Amino acid sequence: MDSDARPLEGNPVQTTATYPLMQWSDHERKRHFRSTYDGGWLRSRPSLIGVVLITAITHENPATREELIEEVRTSAHPDTPLGPSLWKDPSCLDTEEIAEQLCQRGEADRYAAHYGLPPLMTINGVIELLLAARVLYEIRDALGVLRLHPAHPVPPIADVLPVGDGFDG
């Protein structure tokens, strides 16, 4: 693996080499998407964790952070672009939505703490979590630009995040 790949250490889960998306066939991309789905990533809480990972996998070429963040912002909420926060303003939520958001924040904070990261507040924070969990790698391309590559194979969410016993992934 490239010496600029991150993270280099820390997660006991071993993933294999990461391959640039531009060299994958449509069949391989679909298989990768399926393993992400089967691994429980689309049932993550907050769901934006899975959205960031799927967006990285389905992006035509390995994306920069800025490209990935912009694509997630516009695809997740095309009518109202996502602001810098992952979380909705509680004053805009009803009581049930506030309770759900508090629960999701607690889970997200637990995931971040597992890797010694600050609480997840932004899409970039989600990217940092996925890097720490070795689900995404940040690798310099030939021009020296850092690009995000998903791990291959993508490990199940329960192998890299403390999802708890009640997780149905």
Score class of each variant (00 low, 15 high):
Leu120Ala: 02
Asp89Gln: 14
Glu107Arg: 08
Leu102Asn: 14
Ala108Tyr: 00
Ile98Gly: 05
Thr80Glu: 14
Leu82Ser: 07
Ala112Tyr: 01
Asn124Trp: 02
Glu100Arg: 14
Leu120Asp: 03
Pro118Asn: 07
Arg140Gln: 11
Leu86Thr: 06
Ser85Ile: 01
Gln101Arg: 00
Pro81Glu: 09
Arg105Val: 06
Gly116Lys: 03
Leu82Gln: 06
Trp87Ile: 14
His149Met: 04
Leu102Gly: 05
Gly144Pro: 06
Tyr137Phe: 05
Leu102Trp: 00
Ala108Asp: 00
Cys92Met: 12
Glu128Leu: 10
His114Ile: 02
Tyr111Ser: 00
Ile123Pro: 00
Leu86Cys: 12
Trp87Asp: 14
Ala113Leu: 14
Pro84Val: 07
Leu117Ala: 08
Ser85Asn: 15
Trp87Arg: 08
Leu93Met: 13
Ile123Gly: 01
Ala142Glu: 13
Ser85Trp: 08
Ser85Pro: 09
Leu130Thr: 06
Ser91Gln: 13
Leu82Tyr: 08
Ala108Met: 04
Tyr137Ile: 02
Leu82Glu: 09
Gln104Met: 10
Ala132Val: 01
Thr122Gln: 03
Leu120Ser: 05
Thr80Pro: 03
Cys92Lys: 15
Glu128Ala: 06
Arg140Ile: 02
Tyr115Gln: 05
Gly116Ala: 01
Cys103Ser: 06
Ser85Arg: 10
Ile127His: 11
Leu102Pro: 00
Gln104His: 06
Arg147Val: 07
Gly116Asn: 04
Gly125Pro: 10
Leu93Tyr: 04
